[in-house]
Amino acid sequence: MEEIRLDRLSLGELEREIEKYQRKYGMSFDEFMKSYDDDEAKPDTALDQIVWETLEEAKAARIRSGRIDVKVSEERPVVVFTPKRVEILRALSKKSPATVRELAKLTGRPEKAVYNDVRLLQAHGFVKLEGGRGRKTVSLLVREVLIRI
């Protein structure tokens, strides 16, 4: 028997579980549902549908709650909340989504440095970075950061 513990997955891990289904079917969940025929779906597809739907619901609930768990390795601690990164999060709390260029302007820093910080914040699940070259937008995924020791 296989089990997925949704409450133990970080937002990034949830997204990676969802990506498995996106890759398998070559489309987003919304697109999949447009072509999904509930009466004719083969058993495997019907089971994938309910798991995929549950993962999407869990992801949406996680984002709505604004709570994202960050696992910091004791062996290789990562300093996530430098003053400059917190400034980026604060800027995003006022305007989200924002482009990297806008964030650079708001924080008075070079775009490249802001981009690198945004990527690190994305790796920990605090923000989402989207868009192609030239116009990358950043969305805030958390409302509150609680550090439990």
Partner: peptide
């Protein structure tokens, strides 16, 4: 507090 949500698959 987050609910202890889980998905079980049987076959």
């Amino acid at each position: 507090m987050r609910l202890a949500a889980r998905i079980q698959r049987v076959d």
